[in-house]
Simulated assay, not measured.
Amino acid sequence: MAKDILISGGGKGGVGKSVVSVGAIDTALAHGETPILVETDTSNPDVWKMYKNELRAELIDLDEANGWIDLINICDQHPESTIIINTAARNNRGVAAYGETLSNTLSELDRRLVTFWVINRQRDSLELLNDYMTALAGSVIHVVRNGHYGPEEKFELYNGSKLRTSVERSGGQSLTFPDLADRVSDDLYSKRLSIGTAMKTLPLGNRAELTRWRHEVHKVLSGALYGAS
C-alpha cells in the first residue's frame, strides 16, 4: 500500500492548522520518511516557506478543480512519500465542491486518507467538521484539540459531544496537541525556520523548549499515524 495522504484541516483561520502540519512533517521525518508538502494557503504560505528548501514542497490552490487534479497526480506519481496537505482557512468550500474527486481515486491510488481536524474551544470549528465529514467521507478523521487554547478538559463543547462519539466510533482519535511557548513559535514563523534548522540555530533555552514540544508532538501524532505510543 502507498503512503498516507494527510490533511491538516480546520475550516477556519487561527485554529493551528499550520503548526500541526509542521509537527506532522517533523514526525514523518523522524520515522525515516521523505514527505511531500502540499501547501494550499497560497496567500500566506508559511509552512511552504519554512520547508521549501528542505523537501519537495508544492503550492496548490484547492479552491479550483485544477488544484485537485494536480494533487491527485502528485499522489499518483510518488506512492513512496506521505503527502502532507496544509489547508487554507477557506478550504471547506473547495472540499465541498471538489473533495469527491480525491475520494473517488483513493482505491486506485492505494492510499489511506487521514485528516487531523484542528479545533479551538468554539462551536464553529465543530460545525465545520460536520460539513467536512460529509464531503470527504473516505477520510479517517482525528480531532486535534490545540493545547494553545487550554488543557484538554477546557474543550467542553467537543469532549461531551455526539460528534466526538461519531469520530471515535468511525476509527478516529481525539488528540491533544501540545502548546509551544510563544517566543519559540514566533521564532519559527518570523524567521521561516523548519524544526531541523531551528534546532541548529536558536539559543539553547529556545532549543530546550522546542525539544520538549517536539517529543510530545511525536508521541501524539505517531500514535495516530503509526500505532506507536
Rank of each mutant, 00 (worst) to 15 (best):
F177K: 13
G14S: 06
N92T: 12
I119S: 04
S125W: 01
K52L: 10
E33N: 05
S161D: 01
D187W: 08
L128V: 12
G223C: 07
A137G: 02
A24D: 04
Y189R: 08
H218P: 10
P178G: 14
H148A: 14
L62H: 02
G23Y: 08
D187T: 04
H142C: 05
A30Y: 14
N86F: 08
V167A: 01
G10L: 04
S194M: 08
V19P: 06
D41W: 00
G13F: 09
D131V: 09
L71I: 00
Y158A: 01
I5S: 08
I60P: 03
L128S: 11
E168P: 03
R164Q: 13
R112D: 11
G150K: 09
T87K: 06
G16K: 13
G205L: 06
A96P: 04
R212N: 11
L37F: 06
V144F: 03
L37A: 07
V47Q: 00
R112A: 07
R212G: 07
I25A: 12
L210G: 08
D131M: 05
T101K: 14
E156L: 15
K200Q: 15
D186Q: 15
I195R: 08
L136I: 09
R145Y: 04
R212C: 03
N92I: 14
N130W: 02
Y132D: 05
S222D: 14
P79T: 08
L128G: 11
K200F: 07
H142V: 02
Y98K: 04
E209A: 14
R214E: 14
Q77N: 04
V118K: 08
N86Q: 11
G147W: 06
V184M: 00
M133S: 02
D63M: 14
N86D: 15
P178F: 14
G32I: 04
A135V: 02
I141T: 15
A181Y: 05
S8Y: 06
N91C: 09
E54V: 04
S185V: 06
K162R: 08
S185D: 09
A57C: 10
G171I: 00
N66P: 00
G205D: 04
P79A: 11
H31W: 08
D131I: 11
S185M: 13
D179A: 15
A137I: 02
D46M: 01
E156D: 15
A224E: 07
T87G: 10
A224I: 06
L204W: 05
A88R: 14
A28Y: 10
E80S: 14
V184K: 02
H142W: 02
V95W: 15
I84G: 11
W213T: 12
D76W: 01
S18A: 05
L180S: 11
L202C: 03
